[in-house]
Amino acid sequence: MSKSLLIISRQPPWSGPTAREALDIALAGGAFDLPIGMLFLDDGVFQLSTAQQPATLQQKDLGANLQALPMFGVEALYASTRSLQERGLERQKLNLAVELLDDAGLTALVARYDQVITL
């Protein structure tokens, strides 16, 4: 049985390649049919904000690439309620279907996975 891997993505969409490189780990795992989960925490929740205009920074649209997650079989997607609230995003529509978790939910989530990478 495959080991499950949780990727915790904490960076905003365009602070260097980290957000994209976290996503790449998830997509690669999905491509190999591995049990992958992805949690958006702290500034990582900014990746979920809609109506972003990456082209003005000559960046690729990370939000569009996030849509590939379910297509690669990565459907265990989560975001921290606290992180969203701290950033005034709790009432906004998000660009990805994620399960919202409070702190206790996050603790339980991390405990469930066999491996974790936080970047």
Partner: peptide, 8 residues
């Protein structure tokens, strides 16, 4: 990245 996953 497949090599990272395989190692994991």
């Amino acid at each position: 990245l497949g090599q990272l996953h395989e190692a994991t």
